[in-house]
Amino acid sequence: MNRTLRTMRKDRMLYLMLVPGLVFFLLFKYWPMYGISIAFKDYKLGREIWEAPWAGFKYFRQFFSSPDCARVLINTFVISFGKLLVGFPSPILFAILLNEIQRRGAKRFIQTVVYLPHFISWVVVGNLVLMMLAPKTGLFSTAITAITGNDVNVLLDPDAFRWVLILSDTWKELGWSAIIYLAALSGVDMNLYEAAAIDGASRGRMMWHITLPAIRSTIVIMLILRVGKILDAGFEQILIMSNALVNEKCEIIDTYVYKVGLQQARYSYSTAVNLFKSACGLVMVLGVNTVARRWEENML
């Protein structure tokens, strides 16, 4: 014990350095966790949290028995699953194909270009997408009209709009998500390809037997981690892009929490829905991390 104290004394500068960070986490991350208690209380603005009377699970029951519950849960899963289905394999495919580009300058240029949308805010990207899809003036809708002869407006069709969300998210993050696979591919021994070429393997076979196995473990880990975030369907994106006509099929848990909480001022109810989501999210992430660790151990 004495020795522990002595080393801690010696490290006092290090502890001093930690003070601002500790204050930050306590103030901005742990203090709000105390506020979660309003999910179990009848909280009204202007009153202190501890003064509000307890309400038990009233607001949870209210959410589960409301028609909104099934709707926002289904929307969250459908949109999120769509993003997983399209947005997960695309960067893998892109990385494998980019790996086949021989000219280094071209490769670098393509990479720089596809990283760009990741750095742009949803405010801007959302607007770009809406502009491209706008009837009559957008490139996309003009092209569709020219080909089929029909006017289309995907922005007002709820089912089509889900695809707009899925595809624009894929567009934005394609390059960024590919970085990890490209890094794994750059470590592949070139001799393997040469040996395979001498044996007469075609490009397709090389991709299947050399390239894909090289990133297989990365793919599995990324997939597992991705599944842990299935409840995050894209809060800012949907808040910015959706409109009243498509809202029925595009409102997700997060945007619902925002709507009832800060626009309708139902603080306790909103916090209950929010807690339900973050608790499920926490369980999923922890579960998924265990699976990932097990899988990694089995691989070694």
């Binding site: 930690l18 960070g21 500790l22 986490f25 103030l27 901005f28 991350k29 742990y30 203090w31 709000p32 966790m33 105390y34 506020g35 979660i36 309003i38 949290i49 929490v257 925002y258 909480g261 800060l262 603080y267 909103s270 916090t271 929010n274 807690l275 973050s278 608790a279 999210g281 926490l282 992430v285 922890l286």
Partner: peptide, 22 residues
């Protein structure tokens, strides 16, 4: 302990309204 304390905030947070109140 401290690293876990900090890392945990990545997995779980107070949420929209409680954060606003703080």
């Amino acid at each position: 302990v401290l690293t876990t304390l900090f890392y945990f905030t990545m997995l779980f947070n107070g949420g929209l309204v409680p954060t606003y109140l703080v």
